[in-house]
Design a protein around this nucleic acid. Sequence first.
DNA 1: AGGTGTATTTGAACGTGTTCAAGATACGTC
DNA 2: GACGTATCTTGAACACGTTCAAATACACCT
Lengths: 219, 219
Amino acid sequence: MSTRGEQTRAAIAEAALRLFREYGYEATTMRVIAGEAGVATGNAYYYYGSKEELIQEFYARNQAEHAAACRPVLDKETRLGPRIAGVVRALIDVLAPYHGFAAQLYRHAAEPASPLSPFSAESSPARTAAIGLFGEVIGGARVRVPASARGKLAELLWLYSLGIVLYWVHDASPGCRATYRLIDSTAPIAARLIRLAWVPGLRSMTRQLLAVMDDARLP
Amino acid sequence: MSTRGEQTRAAIAEAALRLFREYGYEATTMRVIAGEAGVATGNAYYYYGSKEELIQEFYARNQAEHAAACRPVLDKETRLGPRIAGVVRALIDVLAPYHGFAAQLYRHAAEPASPLSPFSAESSPARTAAIGLFGEVIGGARVRVPASARGKLAELLWLYSLGIVLYWVHDASPGCRATYRLIDSTAPIAARLIRLAWVPGLRSMTRQLLAVMDDARLP
DNA sequence: AGGTGTATTTGAACGTGTTCAAGATACGTC
DNA sequence: GACGTATCTTGAACACGTTCAAATACACCT
C-alpha cells in the first residue's frame, strides 16, 4: 500500500502524543501539532478526522504497555487476590505519567457517542484485550469457577478496573497512593466474593446476576 | 440587592434550557441563547462564566423533580427492593425527556475538574440531596441495618443509581425499556445483598468494605 | 518523455466559545 | 439637579477545531 503518507501520519501522531503529555490535551492545539510534525494545519485532518481521533493512538500504546506490565504477575502469582491487584496496579503504573492528561481525556471518553468511550465499537479491540487479561487472571488462579461464568466474571473485573481508574482520575494524593491503597484493600474483597459466589445460599443470587448481564447487554 | 440584572439572568437561563432541550447542547450556540434572551452575546458571560455553567440550572430543576417523583413510593412502599427500584425508576422517568441532551451532557459531567461532575464540590447540594433520598429508602424499609452503616449504604445505592444512569445514557431501546428492565432485575439483588450483608460469614467482609469507604474518601 | 489520474498537501476561511475595553445605565450623595 | 461610582451592557476581536477548493507530488501507462 501507499508508504508515502505513512511517515507523515506517524510524525503527526508522535508530535501529538508528546505535546499531549507535556502540555495537556486542551492546551495542545492542532496548529502546534501540525507545526511540530512539519506539515500544514489542514493536513493533520487528512490522516485524523479530528483531534479526538489522535487519542486512539494513546489508547493502543497503553493497552500494549499494560499487557506487558501484567506478564510477571500473571505468570508467577497463583493466588486470586494478588492476581487481581497486580493487574490493576500495573494499569495504574502504566497510566501514571499521564495523570493530568487522562483527567482531561475523561470528558471525551465518557460521552456515549464518542468513539473514545470504553464501551464504543471503536474501542472494541482495546476492550476485548483488557477483558482478556482479566480472563487470564481467573484462568491462572487456583480457584474453582464454572467455565460458563468465566467470561462474565472477566467483564465484571474489567468494570471494577474502570471504577479504579475513575477513582484514580480524581485522586490528587501524592504519588496517587490513595488509589494503590484502594486497590490493595478492594482486590481481596473481590477475590473473596468470587470464591463465595458459588457456596449454597449465594449461588442463586450469582446465577441471577449473571443472567442479568446477558439480558442487559446493549447492542 | 440588585434586582436589576435578575430578570436578565432569568431570561438567559430560560432561553438556554429551552434551546438545549429542543436542539441539544452542542447545537445551541451562546449567540443564539443571548439573542433569544434579547441581550448581547457578551452579556451572557456577565451572568454565567461559561456555557457549562448554564447546565447547573438544569441539575437543580431535575433534582427537585426527582425528589417529588419519589414521594409516593417512599411514603407507601415498605419492602426494600421495590423502594430501591421505585426511586431509581423515578429518576429515569424524570430524565426521560432529556435523553439526547443528557448524553451530550455526560461528556462534561464526567470530567473530574468540571463543576458538573457529580463528585465535584459544586454538585455537593444535589449530591447530598440524592444520597438523602437513598437514606430514606433504607430508613423507611422493614430491614435491619446498623445505624452506623446507613449513611455509607445510602452512598452505595447512590453509586448504583449513577451506574443505572450510565447504562440509560447508552440505552437506545425504544422507551428505554432495557434500562427499566435492568432496574427491575438488579434492585432485588441489591436488596438481597443488603439483607445478607450482616449474616455470619459475610459480616466481616461487609465491615471490611465499609472501612474501605472511610479510608478511600477523597478530600 | 509526456499524459493521466490518484494521493497528498496547502492555507485561507468558517463558526464556535470566550474575552475585553469601552460605553450606557442606575443609584446614592451633595 | 449634578456629580461619581458601581452595576450592567455592548459588539468587535481572539484563538480554537474544522472544512474545503485549489495546488502539488507521485505512480503508472503509452
